[in-house]
Design a protein around this nucleic acid. Structure first.
Length: 486
RNA sequence: CGGGGCGUGGCGCAGUCCGGUAGCGCACCUGCUUUGGGAGCAGGGGGUCCCCAGUUCGAAUCUGGGCGCCCCGACCA
């Protein structure tokens, strides 16, 4: 193989590998505008599959979709103090339109809390109007200093759910419900098992009372904040007069939640499963699950072509997403590399020899240890068993990622020295006790570059909970997970 | 905003030091032969050398100014 066609080594230069693989697999390309990207059909196809799975989960939990406008009056953003402080540096502001200076500037939404709760205020009078459970699929804009394809771009696509409830308990339940939806989605669809928990004060969403997060561990052992669910309390309700009359006749402010995942998940997928040959797309999200490549020799190619069509039709009927790659200007080998680079889970080859023997060559994107790259199997078996093979592939991706996460997690660390040492030795998540003192968090961050990813939720806590803060000062109040993060 | 790198056919680059009117690989087009892991041969098309100004008989190359992009750090899903 020509050296120039190889990817940068993943274990030596992960960042470079990531940039190359995203472009080569045709997920995305740089646009002429700094920091923004074009999501190409292959990348968008994955996002669409993510969307439809998530959308279904949202609907199943009682949510509806709506759409709110891109532009928000600047004054709206400015209403909630912490919110504006959090977003001010990264706002794109429109001051001119229609050839005139605007009376009031608009911001391109960095998130939609303000416009949405101002509208809810119009729609809610009584407790009977609650809860409101709305989601929107939208683009948002945050003027970031430094950008990376999918992980942080100026404009990105996401969903943002915004709910209003009569009680704090109900809003808290909603926050947890969605956190669980995200977690399940990441595991079952992306094969990316996150750690869940509460964000520290310094890391929470600007304007939230508390934020919960799904944190996934990438192959370079950096953490990726992959989805967040916020309990907003009455912060926005008070600023936008989102109030209602309770059952008892009292005027009360509603309780809000907001939650979102973005196209960043595509980046997470790449960094979870990709290898030196390209990306690996989990079957449930793959725009193409099986590619069929005919081997056309100088003999009569008609029978091979016909068989290819037949196999594609049968697999489509079985509900699989199948691609017929009968292009004539490329050799089979070139096609193999192309589809492997794009992460298609399975490839079927059909040649004259297979035809004669009633078999097909089946190649898996990721070859299990000890198995051959290709298996020659009876046609009937391939047709009948492929759905199960895909399912198995899906599960194995999750298992592998989970094992990697756990192997790279270090528990029971009791000092900053030890934390630093663990990180220097390439640890991913490092669990310690923490007193809750923000100064400790700040100092450790300064020294190690690691941040508290989450105050670990119960399920992920260590069997023996830490009793001292890693600073050496005071008792531990929370077990926390540290990591260097994207 | 600081540090580094880079702007030359679609992509990756050489040429720049030492000025003489642009070349290589891949990709693309045509034809023939091929096709079970990135095909071969032959022919062919395509470039305001990032922009502006200057020096010069002559600038991709020298001088000055500007712009853009990427990477590494400070902010963030």
């Amino acid at each position: 193989m020509a050296e120039s066609k190889k990817l940068p080594a993943r274990d030596e230069d992960f960042a470079n590998w990531y940039n190359e693989v995203v472009q080569r697999s045709e997920l995305a390309d740089y646009s002429p505008v700094r920091g923004s990207m074009v999501i190409r059909p292959w990348g968008y196809g994955i996002w669409e599959n993510m969307q439809s799975a998530l959308d279904k989960m949202f609907k199943e939990t009682g949510h509806e979709n709506a759409y709110f406008p891109l532009l928000i009056p600047l004054s709206f953003i400015e209403r909630e103090k912490e919110h504006v402080e959090g977003f001010a540096p990264e706002l794109a502001v429109i001051t001119q339109a229609g050839g005139k200076e605007l009376e009031e500037p608009y911001v391109v939404r960095p998130t939609s809390e303000t416009i949405i709760y101002s509208m809810y205020a119009k729609w809610v009078q009584s407790y009977r109007d609650l809860p409101i459970l709305i989601n929107q699929w939208a683009n948002v804009m945050r003027w970031e200093m430094r950008t990376r394809l999918f992980l942080r771009t100026t404009e990105f696509l996401w969903q943002e759910g915004h709910t209003a409830h009569a009680t704090a308990e109900e809003a808290e339940d909603e926050t947890q419900l969605i956190l669980d939806v995200y977690r399940r989605f990441m595991e079952d669809w992306i094969g990316m098992p996150p750690l869940t928990g509460l964000k520290s004060e310094s890391e929470k969403f600007a304007g939230a009372v508390r934020s919960y997060s799904c944190e996934a561990l990438m192959q370079d052992n950096k953490a990726l904040q992959a989805g967040t669910s916020h309990f907003l309390g009455q912060n926005f309700a008070k600023q936008f007069d989102l109030s209602f009359q309770s059952e008892e006749g009292q005027e009360e402010y509603a309780w809000n939640t907001s939650w979102g995942v973005s196209t960043r998940l595509v980046g997470g997928l790449v960094m979870s499963h990709g290898d030196d040959n390209g990306i690996v797309v989990p079957p449930r999200l793959a725009p193409v699950q099986v590619v069929v490549v005919p081997i056309l020799t100088d003999e009569d190619t008609e029978p091979v072509r016909a068989k290819t069509k037949e196999i594609v039709a049968k697999l489509s009927e079985a509900g699989l997403r199948v691609k017929d790659d009968s292009r004539e200007n490329l050799s089979p080998g070139a096609k193999f590399y192309e589809w492997e680079g794009k992460g298609v889970p399975f490839r079927i080859e059909i040649g004259p020899r297979d035809l004669a023997q009633g078999q097909l060559a089946l190649a898996r994107r990721v070859t299990p240890v000890g198995e051959k790259r290709k298996a020659f199997l009876p046609e009937g078996q391939v047709i009948a068993e492929l759905p199960a093979y895909l399912e198995k592939f899906q599960v194995e991706l999750l298992d592998t990622a989970r094992a990697r996460r756990d192997e790279n997690t270090v528990r029971g660390v009791t000092s900053v020295d030890e934390l630093e040492e663990a990180l220097e030795h390439g640890a991913g998540f490092v669990f310690t006790g923490w007193s809750g003192d923000p100064a400790v968090e700040e100092e450790v961050k300064e020294r190690t570059k690691a941040t508290i990813r989450v105050l670990v939720s119960e399920e992920f806590r260590s069997e023996e909970s830490p009793d001292r803060c890693l600073s050496g000062q005071g008792a531990s109040v929370h077990e926390v997970a540290w990591a260097r993060a994207y």
